[in-house]
Structure formats: structure tokens, C-alpha cells
Design a protein around this nucleic acid. Structure first.
Length: 321
DNA sequence: AAGCTCATCAACCGCAGCCGT
DNA sequence: GACGGCTGCGGTTGATGAGCT
């Protein structure tokens, strides 16, 4: 059985919108405002379902949309935000004025994820230091380091947070302050981009005095825990392994092995799981500095000393290298 | 020139969450 | 609390057209 159409009513139009339909929708919303999508098509005289109208408005007709190619700065921003939020496109879009979640999602799936893949195949890079300059989107069209859909799908899955394991809400925390002083219910991020900073200050997320331009701090909330396995599953992909592979099939096989390994890990004893819990990360700091990403970890409630730092690094290495 | 491959992007679909009853 | 309707989100599909053989 195939998918049932979103509109049960027979006779509703689907597919590309015509200029006339666009005009009717714009006209109606300008007069009556957004909302009530269910009843909107009838009132606006459109043979479309409400969902379709909403999508058309949000993704294409809205007046505040920025048209044209995504800029290099926006690219960098998307990479950073995707690292923080995962595939929460609406959240990412909310930090990029004039861009829609659909646009960003398409951009990511068609360009940036491939650029990230190319980064992973570079032997000289490590998993914890990402050179942003290698993530720049090539202006050349087509046939540049393409990854098959299956591989892309699997790779995306390996870096995605599952529904029951959502990424942490983010709170801006200047690096020289203790995390607890800055916990709020807001979700945001500090970057080195001016319009982001202005937005954060405007929303009272932070004060202008608190800005630390090169730092992002991701702060957990009560309902979420990143344990080391989960986090590393997303981050620790051995670039040397990937780069030694010659074709998509080899990569697919390698990814399948990782998946199998992860399934086994989930079947571990209670004691092992408690150990993971003990090592759960309540804060994660990410530094964006001079085109490099660096990750730092800290344990709940206290600052990370060198010994703990080494312990975490060896845990990482023991597990994944 | 024709056919094929593949990138891009608009649009669709299912589902989860919210809200009113 | 249960239920149903509406909305928004994220995954996916399919049309289109550019580039390649």
C-alpha cells in the first residue's frame, strides 16, 4: 500500500504552483494574515490543501525571505549550527535570517554534507579538529566528490541524534565563567558573526559585556544526557580509515560494521552502562578559532583538570582507535 | 545530437506535539 | 485523562535541467 495523499479531497491541485495561485495566496494573507491554514484555501479560492499553502508561503512567498545563493558566511554558520543542533533544521533556520528550514536542509543534503564527507577523507586531518576552510562549498557545479544516496543516508544516520536522545539545549556561557551561573531556558549560541551576537543581545540571552566572540558553549538541560559513547558515535569517525577506502561499497561496509558494533554496545551490562552514566557530559565546549574547530569536554559540576582530560582522551582512543 | 547521470530544489508525506473540548 | 483537529517539523520524493559520455 502506498502513501495516502495529504489531502483526502479529490480534485485538489498538487505539484508546482502557478503565478496566479501565488498571487491569490499573497493577496489573501496580506489581507487576512497567516494562520488557519485548513480553511485558508477555500477562503482564498485555491484548489490546494492547507499544508501546501502553508509550505508555499513559508518557503517561497514570505516577504522577509532572502533570495539568492547561500553565502560563505552562511555556509560556515550552517556547519556550526548543524554540529550543535543536528538535523533540527527549523532551529538552524531560526539563526539565519531570511533562510527557511527547507532551503537549509536542501543545501545541507546537496552540498555541505558532501563537503563534510570530503573532509573526512582527508588523511591529514584529525577527528577533533575541523578546518572550516575545507568545508567551503565549491562554486563549481556537479560531479565533485559525490557520495551515493545510500552512503549519505548511512553517514547522516551515524551523526544524527535519535528522537529519544535529543541534542542539548544551548545556553550562552562566557568561557571564563562557571557554567551554572548562566543556565537559562533559552536555546542559543554565540558565534563570531555580528548579526548573531546582535540577535542574542536583543533577545536578552546575553548582555553585550558577556560576549566572547570565538566561543560556543553547549549547556545541557535536565532531561538530556550525552554520554561518551553517544557523543563519540557522532564525532569520532576515523578519517584515516575512511580515506583508505576506495569506493562507496567499502565505505558502506565499514559503516555497517560500526552500526553493528553500536548495537552490541547497547547490549552491555548494567555496570558498564552505569560507568557511562558516571562519565556523562553535562557540558560541552566548542571553540571556533582561526578557522579551526576544537572540542573540549568537562565533567559535571567541576572544571576539567589535566588528569581528567587525559582520561577522556584515552577513553576515546581505547574505544575508537 | 541523443541518452544518461546526477545535483538541485520545490513540494509532499507522516508523525509528533500542542491545544481546545 | 481521552480524543480530535491543527500546525510545524524532518525525511523523502520527483521534476527539472546541466553536465558528461
Amino acid at each position: 500500500m502506498g502513501r495516502s495523499p495529504c489531502c483526502e479531497k479529490v480534485g485538489l491541485k498538487r505539484g508546482r504552483w502557478t503565478a496566479e495561485e501565488d498571487e491569490a495566496l499573497i493577496k489573501y494573507i496580506q489581507t487576512n494574515g497567516e494562520g488557519s491554514w485548513k480553511s485558508l484555501p477555500n477562503k482564498a479560492g485555491l484548489l490546494r490543501c492547507g499544508k501546501s499553502c502553508r509550505l508555499r508561503w513559508i518557503n517561497y512567498l514570505r516577504g522577509d525571505l532572502k533570495r539568492g545563493n547561500i553565502t560563505d558566511e552562511e555556509d560556515e554558520m550552517i556547519v556550526m549550527l548543524h554540529k550543535a543542533f543536528g538535523n533540527r533544521w527549523s532551529m538552524i533556520a531560526s539563526h539565519l535570517p531570511g533562510r527557511t528550514d527547507n532551503e537549509i536542509k536542501n543545501h545541507w543534503n546537496s552540498r555541505l554534507s558532501r563537503q563534510t564527507y570530503r573532509f573526512l577523507t582527508n588523511k591529514n586531518k584529525t577527528a577533533t579538529s575541523i578546518d572550516i576552510s575545507t568545508l567551503q562549498v565549491s562554486q563549481k557545479k556537479r560531479r565533485v566528490g559525490r557520495v551515493s544516496r545510500n552512503v549519505a543516508k548511512k553517514y547522516n544516520q551515524s551523526t544524527r541524534f535519535s528522537k529519544n536522545n535529543k541534542p542539548p539545549s544551548l545556553t550562552v556561557v562566557p568561557v571564563d565563567k562557571h557554567v551554572d551561573e548562566n543556565v537559562g531556558d533559552c536555546s542559543n549560541v554565540v558565534t563570531n558573526h555580528d548579526h548573531m551576537k546582535e540577535s542574542l543581545v536583543h533577545d536578552n540571552v546575553i548582555t553585550s559585556d558577556e560576549l566572547e566572540p570565538n566561543w560556543l558553549v553547549f549547556e545541557d538541560d535536565d532531561s538530556f544526557n550525552i554520554n561518551i559513547d553517544d557523543f563519540l558515535q557522532g564525532e569520532a569517525i576515523d578519517s584515516n580509515v575512511v580515506s583508505s577506502m576506495n569506493d562507496d561499497d567499502e565505505i558502506e561496509q565499514w559503516l555497517a560494521e560500526i552500526e553493528e558494533e553500536n548495537i552490541k554496545k547497547n547490549e552491555r551490562s548494567v555496570d558498564e552502562k552505569l560507568e557511562d552514566e558516571r562519565l556523562s557530559l553535562n557540558s560541552l565546549e566548542v571553540c571556533y578559532n582561526e578557522s579551526k574547530w576544537d572540542m573540549e569536554f568537562s565533567f559535571t559540576g567541576f572544571e576539567m583538570c589535566d588528569e581528567e582530560d587525559n582520561m577522556l582522551v584515552s577513553l576515546w582512543e581505547d574505544t575508537y582507535y
